[in-house]
Each structure stands twice: as C-alpha cells, then as structure tokens.
Nucleic acid binder design. Structure first.
Lengths: 206, 206
DNA sequence: GTATTTACTGACCGAACGTTCTGTACTACT
DNA sequence: AGTAGTACAGAACGTTCGGTCAGTAAATAC
C-alpha cells in the first residue's frame, strides 16, 4: 500500500484515507456551510479530483454524517459520565458545562458543523434529534438544581438551560485553537473557567 | 393596480410586492439556510412561479441583502441611542443587552438570517463586517464598565462581550413569538428580564 | 513475474441551479 | 375604446450540482 503520492509539482503528499479526508471536508463545511460547499471546493481543499474523493466515500451526505458523529459522540457520552450523574445538581451542571466547553474546543470544526445544521436532510434531522435529547438532559439537571435550592427559582429551567448552552456554543464563532501561545488564554482550561464564572455568578461586581 | 389574485383553487390572495415577498423569502432562508434554499423552495412557499419572483427582485442575492439590512439597521442604530451613549457603563451595557433582545424577538427571522451568514458572497462578507463593528462597540462598553468597577475584572472584556451576545443570539434557536398566550413568558419583556438577570447576577443562589 | 489491490483521474451523466425571454391576463388611466 | 403598466406563467438558457464509470500507474501479494 502506498503511503505517499507525487503531486504534479513533484512535491510529495501523504496518501488520503477516510479520516484525513473527513478532516478536510468538515473544515470546508464549517467555513461555507454544508449546502454552500460543493465537490469543487472539496476538490480544491484536498488536492484530489472529484472522482478521487468518491474512492474514499459513498456520498457527500456520508461525510456530513461522519462529521456530525464526531461531535455528537463525546457530547452524548458526557451525560453518562460519573460527574454528570452523581453529586449535587449544581456540581453536575458545572461538570456538564465544563465538559461541553472542553469538547467544543477539542473538536471545534465538528461541533461547529453540528451547530450549523438546518434539518434539510434525514441526516440533519437525526442530528437535531440527538441535540434535543442532550438539551432535555441538561434542562432536567437545571431543574434538579433549582429544586435543591442551588439555582435561583425566578427563572425557568428550560430557558436557563438553553441560554447557558447558547453562551457556550457561541464560543465556536470566535475561538481559534491554532495560536497556542495566545495571550487570550494561558491554559486550555481558562476559557472553561471564564464561562463557568460568568454563568454561575454573573458579570456584575457585588 | 390590482390588489389581489385568484389562485388555481379559486381562493383569493393579495398581490405580492417586494416587502411581502421578502418576508416569505427570509422565512425560507432561515429555515433551510441561504444556500440550501432554492427558487423552487421560494416558489412553493410564495405560490409564485420562479419567473414571477423575478418580476419583484433582481437576484437571489438582493433578497439576502434586503433581509440582512432589516436586521442590521436597528442593531447598528441602537448603538447611537441615548441609552447606549450616556450614563454609567453598566447601565449602557444593560441597555444594549435589552435592546438586542428586543430587536431579536421583534425581527426574529431577519436576525436569524444575519446570524447564519457564512461569508460566501460579497453581501455576506459585508454583513459580517457590520457585525464585527457592533461587537467592537459593545466590547468597549464592557471595558468601560470594568474600568468603572461595575463589572468583575477577572474576565476579559472582549471575551465577555462575545459570551454575553452569544447567549442573547442563541435565543433565535428556540424563541417563537407566534403563540401569544405562551405560558413561558407573560409579557414581551419577560425574556429580556430573564436574560439580564442571568447575565448580571448568574444562575447561582447566594 | 503475474495477479490483485490501492489511490487516483478524466470524461461523462441527468438533475437542479439561478436567470432570462416571450407572452398573456388583468387593471388603471385617458 | 385605446394605451400603458402591472403581475404573473411557461419554456428554455448556460452553468454547476452530486454522482458514475472505465481506466491507469504504482505498490503489494503470491
């Protein structure tokens, strides 16, 4: 099995497999939107011809599904982890928030893809259903925290859960992991800390 | 000038003008995404033929631009209103947050369209630039509030501004204004109140 | 050294895309 | 009654879409 190819320029380039191609495709999907990204774009970004891409995949929608799974899998898994199922509800909620930020920053393009889904195809509707399940789980934890007296009861649990993850998910719009020595965040956990601080105690000084 | 038309079914339907057509188009754009929405979809949603749509517009991108302007105009205008330019920074920030929620709920489909823009066309890049200008304005107000000691200084102003409006903008994903007698919010200002409460003081009971 | 497999390509397909053109029914004005 | 303008529809435009297929060059397997 070959491990690299000679480009027309003579430059060597490692051979593609499904995984590597998926990375490129999801990058293009998140930049232009799934519908806005054509095989011409994928071709240009990967250096492969349209037909060569089909050597690795079955359809464009399969690429979407694989990308969405990469985001949904750790997200859904986080709801069964010990930190999310045991202890005071406020701690479980904090755990879910922190894990969500971690997953988002760790798999930024995949989660971005997930959050941009419209429900146009069967695959997209499946992803939306998964997200809804996740949202319901978190809303229940918020309700538990209200019942335990740890979260203010002058707000609606469902609305609070939605607003909380609205804030978290918006991180995808500006967070860029590439510049490792960013002055913005010294450690990877800085962002999660800042999000938890804002959500738990608000922005106001008291 | 005619004011209504007979449908094949015999049912009467008011004549379209640019404004009314725009409402329908933006609705379709927000549901399927601009790239995912074709003239076939617009045709079906409006009841007009593809060619008839062109009687009212010059291009698909013109529809996008008109829709984006409907969202950007009140948003940019809010930054020059008295409440946003005078008084303590924390009050100016609160005003901006409240106005943003108002504009979002008042022009939901248009703002949703704006927030889903990818930057694929010149029009989309122009909209992104406008948003960036708005974001910078708010970040400056947050910095002022930090300097005045009203907002905690253990968080970054730019990041805080982004997270704040990340939460607000996420409202578009679930807020539906149509059911007027919703048990969720008694008055239109309830949502703005809840958002301000969460952002200023956090979710935790103290 | 031949057969098989892997990675890839160019040419092509029908369908759908945004857009244009020609024509028609109807209304408003004179 | 005649003219002009409005609001539409049908058919077709060239282009691009996602997808197929027959084939090739190189590496691996036997």
């Amino acid at each position: 099995m070959s491990t690299e190819r000679l480009l027309p320029s003579g430059e060597a380039r490692p051979t593609y497999n499904l995984e590597r191609l998926l990375d490129v495709a999801v990058q293009v999907f998140t930049e232009r939107g799934y519908d806005g990204a054509s095989f011409q774009h994928l071709s240009h970004a990967s250096g492969l011809s349209k037909s060569s891409i089909y050597h690795h995949i079955e359809s464009k929608e399969q690429l979407l599904r694989l990308g969405l799974e990469k985001a949904l899998e750790p997200l859904m898994a986080s709801t069964t982890e010990t930190g999310a199922t045991t202890g005071p509800a406020i701690d479980r909620l904090t755990y879910l928030i922190r894990r969500n930020v971690e997953i988002l920053t760790d798999r930024l393009p995949y989660v971005t893809l997930l959050l941009g889904v419209h429900g146009n195809t069967e695959t997209e509707r499946w992803a939306l259903e998964q997200r809804r399940t996740y949202d319901r789980f978190v809303a229940d934890v918020v309700q538990d925290a209200i019942d335990e007296g740890a979260v203010r009861n002058d707000v609606d649990a469902r609305t609070t859960a939605r607003l909380v993850f609205g804030m978290i998910n918006s991180v995808r719009e500006w967070y860029r992991p590439d510049r490792g020595s960013s002055p913005q965040f010294r450690a990877p956990n800085d962002l999660a800390d800042q999000v938890c601080t804002l959500l738990l105690d608000g922005i106001r000084v008291r």
